[in-house]
Structure formats: C-alpha cells, structure tokens
Simulated assay, not measured.
Amino acid sequence: MTSVDFEPATGRDHRLLDGLSAAVLPKVSLHDHLDGGLRPQTIIELAHELDIDIPADDALALGSWFATQSDSGSLVEYLKTFDVTLSVMQTADGLARVARDFVEDLHADGVIYGEIRWAPEQHRARGLSLDEAVDAVQGGIEDGIASVSRTGGSIRIGQLVSAMRQADNGAEIARLAVRHRDNGAVGFDIAGPEDGFPPSRMRGAFDYLAEHFMPVTVHAGEAAGLDSIRSALFDGRTLRLGHGVRIAEDIDVEHEQGGSSLVTLGALAEWVKDREIALELSPSSNLQTGAIAAWGSELADHPFDLLYQLGFRVTVNTDNRLMSNTTLSRELALLADTFGYDLGDLETFQLNAAAGSFLPVEEREDLADRIIRGFDAL
C-alpha cells in the first residue's frame, strides 16, 4: 500500500480553453460502441426499410428519446435503449452504413484514431454469420475512411470484437477476433451485464487469446467493483479496463486541514497504476449508469481528477454517443469546465490514449507525435 499527498482540483490555477472548440483537438477514442453511436436519421431510414417500429419518426425527437431513456441512473435501463439500435443492425447493408457513418462522425469530431467495439453475436437475427457481420462492419469502416480521405482528412480505425459475457460464447468470439486480425480486428473485449458475470467465466477464451497474442480490454469496474477488476486483470489478462472507474474504491482519501488530503492506495489500485493499465473513463456515461454513485451524482464527484492527479493512465471516452447525447469533444470540455483543466491536461489524456491503443509500438509513437504536433499548432 502506498500513501501520497493529494491536492484536489479546487484551487489549481489552470487555464481553460478560452473559447477554443475542443473539436479542433486531435483525439484518440478507445471506448466507443458501434451500436451506441448511430445517427437518429440513419435509425429512421433503416427502420423504414426493415418495417421496424421505433419510438419516433423525427430525428430530433428520436435523439431526445434516447437521451431521456438513458439518463436513468441504472445500467440495466440504460442498456434497454440498445434494443432499438440493434434492431436496425441485422443486415450487411445496415451494419456497413452504421459503420461508415460512425467513422465520418468521429472524423468530424477531430478523432484521428479510434477503436470501435461491438459484439458480432448480437447481429445474427436476420441470418448473418459472425464472419459476414465482421466483413460488413469492416467494409463500412473502409468506406468511411475513404469518404474522409476524399475531403482531405485522415483517420485510422480498428475493430474491437466483443463477446457478451452472459451468452457464454467467449471461445467462439475469441476465435473470430483472431481470425479477423488481418481484416480490421485489433483486439477483443467482453461486454454486457458485469455484475454476476466475471471474466473468470471466459478463462478459456482469454487463454486462447493470450496464446495468439491478441490484445484484450475488459469492461470492469463499472457495474461491479474490485473483484470484477481483479478478475479482468488476472483471468482476462486485460491491458486496459473498460471504464475501470471503481478502482477508486481501493483508494482511501483522508481529508486534512488546509485542503490537502492523504491518499492511500490499496494493492489492486497500486498494481493498476504502476503497470500503467489504461482506464477507459467515460464521464457522462458513468453518471448516467450510476457507476460513480458511491461518490455522488454530479460530474464534480467523479473520481476522474483523483485518478489523474495520482498518476493513473486516465483516458477520456464517450461510451455511447447517442445515448449520452455527447461527443469526445464535449466530454473533454465538460472535464475542463469542471476540474479546471487546460490544453496541457487534455493533451495528456490523448497521449495516454495513444499509449494504451492496440497499435504496434512504432505506430503508437507516430500517433503520439501527431497529437503533439496538433496541440503545438494551436
């Protein structure tokens, strides 16, 4: 266990963005779900093609419905909105269009590298095989990259192939990810209900992935606590923690007079910090799902700043842009307004994400150089 002095955000003299739009900042997106980032208009058009009933036929009204339904404080209720998005993502054409839109929207927000996570097993209702689903998404990604290129832009995208932890298909999805590592797949993830479905249930899948050197990120420390994180690290051999916000439960903060605090890290928190295991924090989503309920119900209560100041490899993410009515730029702006972060802090978050990405080391270094050049030009 390690004890350190900690100065909270209040009182730090940090320069805000001074009117600069965060959209111009070069960004890296590590935790962004394909089925959580659809354009409302795309949902409407695909639903009409497939004769599917949806809550609203107007893009603005549909977007508002998603935001309202998602702002429940419950991960279970939050996940119900995916019934709508998944319903229009059951054909090759639908998957390709959603993936193309997704890439274009990331580029419009200043993202230069993104890892898109999704679960192919959730897209077989209309007869697609797992491989056909992956091919369709990759085709859409490539179309989106080409569209960005035609406008003079540049973006790079990788797929994170997810297994649903409650479905017990981990071994099959692990083989799928490895099979498509030369077709866009850069890593593996497990998603779905975290509490009651620890990574240890898929230990065989993780063994297979390790044997084939496929990088892994695991949803952990969102709807469940330290035991889930521990299983992700030691059963899943995860290189990143999907959310991971509840690692703060292993940090004891003793407030002292004068505004400073004595902070003690438990063994698990110390391991995550010392190993530089990236935390895929998603501030707005963490509020909506109740992931930070132990600390409060406002963004200022989020342990993001505590983790950052203690030296954890924090990254900023959207989780589900449609449900949270957000973008990566908006998340960065919210954090800057709440904790007084300046451009140097926002650059650190992007460099953390670049370092945590599942690219080869030389390409991670090139990505970091591109981020640095982008921030230096501002």
Rank of each mutant, 00 (worst) to 15 (best):
T10K: 13
R15I: 04
A22H: 00
V24K: 06
S29K: 01
D32G: 00
A47L: 08
H48Y: 00
H48M: 10
I52A: 11
D53A: 14
D57S: 13
A59N: 00
A67V: 09
S70L: 04
G73D: 03
L75W: 06
D83T: 09
L86Y: 05
Q90W: 12
T91V: 13
D93S: 14
G110W: 11
I112K: 02
R117I: 07
E121M: 14
E121V: 11
A125D: 15
V134K: 09
D135W: 01
D135Y: 02
V137F: 10
I141R: 08
G144Q: 09
I145D: 05
T151H: 14
G152I: 13
G158F: 07
G158T: 09
V161S: 12
S162R: 07
Q166Y: 08
A174T: 05
A177F: 06
N183Q: 12
A185P: 03
A191Y: 02
F197C: 13
G204L: 12
D207Y: 00
H212R: 15
P215D: 10
H219K: 11
G221F: 01
E222V: 06
A223H: 00
D235C: 07
L241Y: 01
G244I: 02
V245Y: 03
I247M: 03
I247N: 05
D250M: 10
D252N: 12
G259E: 10
V263G: 04
V272I: 04
T289S: 08
W295P: 11
W295Q: 13
W295M: 04
L299Q: 04
D301L: 09
F312N: 08
T315K: 02
D319S: 05
M323L: 15
R330L: 14
L334K: 09
T338E: 13
G340F: 12
G340E: 09
D342I: 07
L343A: 10
D345E: 14
S357P: 05
L367V: 09
R370V: 04
I371Q: 05
